[in-house]
Amino acid sequence: MDAGTVIAGILTLAILTFLYRDNPVYKLAESLLIGVSIGYFLVINWSNTIMDLMFVPLFTQGKLMLIIPLILGLLMFGRFNRKTTVLSRIPIAVLIGSGAGVAIPAMLDARTLQQMSATVTPILAPDGLPNISELVVMAGVITTLIYFYFSREHRGWWGKSATMGTYFLMIFFGTTFAYTVMSRMSTFIGRMEFLLSDFLKLTQ
């Protein structure tokens, strides 16, 4: 058995000890995971973004415009000194402003208009009978939106529609929950398989 499998097995068991209760072994493994993960993303971030997107094009291809994000990025370090902390607001302003400017048309298109147009479909099937499934979608979208509209009191027919909306929401939460359970379970089975076959060699 190679060293990698032994270490991976021990660390897997260390994390699993949390099932008993919070303990020093788990805390140590957790601290190691946090540290190593940050270190990994630091290296990948440095290599893929700061080097490949900035330093290499700036110094080898002479793309001088990249000085702008370099300066903005360096201004972020102003946060570490009380006197210079205001400087860090400039790159944040660029990020927030650009994000907001792009979000307005992009969100309106992808999240609102496209979703609405997908909802408004022919309610009659080609055979002339009502398309029940599409009617369900239309009713679901409208009633769920009514539920999220808080400027009017949920009473009378409006309240009944809002309650209907909660039923659709519960279906959505139920399906999402089931998928979450399945994904976690399959990961857990994967870890158990590793422990039993690769690490402990109890199964083939």
């Binding site: 994000g99 979000a103 969100m107 309106l108 999240r111 609102t112 909802t119 979608v137 679901g140 409208i142």
Partner: peptide
């Protein structure tokens, strides 16, 4: 269908919320 309907309504809400916040 029913789950997609609720998801769509949530997305529309997110879209409108992002729009106003932006």
């Amino acid at each position: 269908y029913p789950s997609m309907a609720a998801r769509r309504a949530i997305l529309i809400g997110i879209g409108l919320g992002s729009l106003t916040t932006s």
